[in-house]
Amino acid sequence: MKDKDIHLVSRESVILFASMLKEVDSDIYGLLRQATIPNDIDTETDYRFLPESSLKNTLDLLAGKLSNQTLGWLFLRACKEKYIPRFVNKLSGCSTVKHAIERFCQQLNHESTGAKTSLQYAGETWWFVREKNGVDEAWFKYAEMFSVIFMCELIRAVTNDKWRPERVGIQSPCIDEFAKLPSMELAQFFLERPMTAVEINEATLSLPVSASRQKGVLKNARIEQQLDSLSFTQQFTLAITPYLSMGKLPIKIAAEILRMNVRTLQRKLAAENIIYKQFIEDLVFKEVSKRIIETDDAITQIAIRYGYSDGAHFTRSFKRIYGVSPLQYRKQNLDK
């Protein structure tokens, strides 16, 4: 698996994990800040991706506040009620369980760059495999716990609960937490494997898909983005766009959000001839110009949204880039 410079995850996935924070504390906005998740994550926004670091921070928070048993049940409920239905709705038209799992693996590649899933044949049987780096980091165990539950529940969903997990390989070195996961009591776990893997025999893979499209869960009709082909600058743009409301986002804050060293971020941007301060300003005003044209929000409201407390300073900066004031820019574009 190719290691990406900045791992990306879909906004929908972050929303799922952000909703789990409500089980920890009613002060959800305080927890979102700790997890570096934008406060507008659950509203109508233009961004589609966030840095995977936001999920890692969320897992660290959840693990620090909840017992492993509570986390297991929380993961299971989230999978059954939200995550599995969303993916099942994208598997319509699949004739067999094997086809459905292969389609899921393709779909995940459009939603995340941090992990790779696939079907692999080894040891005279088939395995539903997840490859992921970071086994020595604190968040990894909890991410793998969620993944094991999700993979098993996905198979159950497409077989109409005709399948049960029997053999599961995990990268983590501790078996107790996994053996106690809900719905996994009868599974045999194998520790410290190079990847997470759930055995699924050929007879099960040949079964027709039983899961049906569920009402109330909409299929994402947007064109899927080929994340694997993105340059570092493109990765960085997608990852940092949700945080542009912070205005002149200091590079130190950006690096913290991305769990990167400041010098590493500077070096990677410089390799693509990018000057951080100028690049961030360009991104901010690209979003600002869209909002000026596409909404009737007051200019002062837009200025505040993107980190400018001084309207005059905002207007001067905008005029320096576009040659006209924000109000003139709106009028020019509305007259076209």
Rank of each mutant, 00 (worst) to 15 (best):
F75M: 01
L61S: 01
S206T: 04
E81P: 03
Y47Q: 04
S95H: 12
V217Q: 10
G72Y: 04
H7Y: 08
F87A: 02
V209F: 05
D42T: 12
A197K: 03
Q225R: 15
R33A: 09
F150H: 14
K277E: 08
P208W: 09
I280W: 07
F140P: 03
C94F: 08
L244Y: 03
E52S: 11
P165A: 15
M260Q: 12
Y121W: 14
E192D: 12
L258N: 04
S54R: 02
T204C: 10
A221M: 12
G307N: 02
E272M: 10
Q301A: 11
L249D: 07
T315W: 00
E166W: 01
T237L: 01
Y29P: 00
Q214Y: 07
R320S: 12
L244D: 02
S95K: 15
A298H: 11
Q120K: 13
C79P: 02
E102K: 15
A298P: 02
V284E: 00
A255F: 02
K277M: 00
Q171K: 13
M246P: 00
L154G: 00
N273R: 09
A312Y: 13
F190N: 05
M195Q: 09
E137A: 13
Y329F: 15
A312S: 14
F140C: 02
S317A: 15
T264L: 11
A100T: 10
D228N: 14
C105M: 05
L59V: 08
D335M: 15
A78I: 05
V217M: 10
I292Q: 03
Y142V: 13
K215T: 06
S95Y: 10
T233A: 12
N220D: 15
A221S: 06
L55M: 15
V198R: 01
L269D: 05
F189H: 00
P165E: 11
R291A: 07
Q332W: 13
T237R: 08
L61T: 07
S54I: 02
P250Q: 10
E224M: 09
Y142R: 07
E281V: 05
G134T: 07
K336R: 05
H110T: 15
K82Y: 14
E52Y: 12
V129K: 13
E185T: 12
G72H: 04
L227P: 03
I149A: 02
L31S: 03
S118A: 11
S147F: 06
L62S: 13
